[in-house]
Nucleic acid binder design. Structure first.
Length: 347
DNA sequence: TCTGGGGTCCTAGGACCC
DNA sequence: TCTGGGGTCCTAGGACCC
């Protein structure tokens, strides 16, 4: 979807169309979640600190995020996709992969999907089409907003040969910087780099992977059902906090919120973890795995508090979080009970 | 001017088991 | 008194994605 949160907001504020609009929280440490294309011209993008966004674009209209609304509109969009295509992999609220292999004329099908999304939801989207998720994703980003780009693997290689490696999803800032240090600053160079050089820099797996990504050779199937393996709640304080007596009540609140959700969905996990970000932005995690999966508020709170006490933050804390992991397995066991293959047999 | 919230996957080292 | 090879599970950190 194109500037999804902003587009949803414009539906109830049509008077703002054409203006720089920024959806961002209001606190001193808020970041931009979405910027309209008009705001992007001023250098305001997702993850830009809101304080910086206000300076870059003083005329922008700032709106607080309304995730409940965005989730509703997202469901509408995904429903339209599923009405048109059998195999849909949802990636976040505003993105999905569609497997069009069953269509005799896939390009026509993609055109119909784009038109249907716009007609039924009033929201704009960009579509990329290719022989793999990787090509499709890069193609969909190439002509946003309102794009429709169809590329073969070879066409993608040609078109993005001189683009920076960071164009590829999976090559982030750290990897791009390390590549640049070694003179690899285009996808053509990365695709042509000797495997020995890449594996020397990044190890055998990532090294090979990067070369393949640059040649658009990465293929992974469209996976319709993805079950969450962990769930967490975290919060960044407006001002750093110190002291267990201050932090523990926050941990209790986060644990209660998390467990309420898990209970409602009857999901449990055996591993309880905390996340602590200090004032120097270093992030620390601690985890403990119990004998049995749980979503019990008292258990989660107790373990999380123990972990925090044992960690004993050595500096002021800017973020605190709680996590329950291993949900996949817990849900499967709860749903089916112990299967035959799990029954113990001693002879 | 500092840097949200909610996730996934990978790596490396250690414990432990056969 | 010295130590193989294969495997799983767990923890912690880091890179990355939307």
């Amino acid at each position: 979807m194109d500037a999804f949160y902003v587009s949803v907001e414009l539906q109830r504020r049509p008077d703002l169309a054409g203006r720089p609009v920024v959806v961002a929280g209001s606190g001193p440490r808020a970041v931009v979640t979405t910027a309209s294309y008009e705001a992007r011209k001023f250098g305001v993008f997702s993850a830009t600190p809101a304080s910086r966004a206000r300076r870059l674009c003083a005329d922008a209209v700032f709106l607080p995020p309304d995730f409940k609304l965005y989730r509703e509109r997202s469901r509408d969009v995904m429903a339209v996709l599923r009405e048109n295509v059998e195999i849909v992999e949802v990636v976040g609220l505003d993105e999905a992969y569609l497997d069009l292999r069953g269509f005799e004329r896939p390009k026509a099908a993609a055109r119909r999907v784009k038109a249907a999304v716009e007609e039924r939801t009033g929201l704009g989207c960009s579509i990329g089409m290719g022989p793999s998720k990787l090509v499709a994703k890069v193609a969909s980003d190439a002509e946003k907003p309102n794009g429709f780009v169809v590329l073969s693997r070879e066409a993608a290689r040609d078109r993005f040969a001189s683009a920076a490696p960071g164009l590829i999803p999976g090559i982030g800032p750290k990897t791009a910087a390390r590549l640049a240090e070694h003179g690899i600053d285009t996808l053509a160079k990365l695709g042509a780099a000797l495997e020995a050089e890449l594996t020397g820099l990044f190890g055998p797996r990532l090294g090979v992977h990067l070369g393949r990504l640059a040649r658009f050779e990465h293929d992974s199937p469209v996976t319709p059902v993805r079950v969450a393996k962990s769930e967490s709640r975290e919060t960044t304080f407006d001002q750093d906090l110190s002291g267990l007596e201050t932090l523990t009540p926050v941990l209790e609140r986060l644990s209660a919120e998390l467990c309420t959700t898990l209970e409602r969905e009857d999901r449990r996990g055996p591993t309880i973890g905390i996340k602590v970000r200090l004032d120097d932005f270093s992030t620390h995690t601690r985890a403990r795995t119990l004998d049995a999966p749980t979503n019990d508020r008292a258990v989660v709170t107790g373990v999380a508090s123990d972990l925090l006490r044992e960690f004993d933050p050595p500096r002021p804390v800017r973020l605190l979080g709680v996590r329950v992991a291993g949900l996949d397995r817990a849900a499967a066991e709860a749903a089916t009970g112990p299967g035959d293959d799990q029954m113990a047999l001693a002879v």
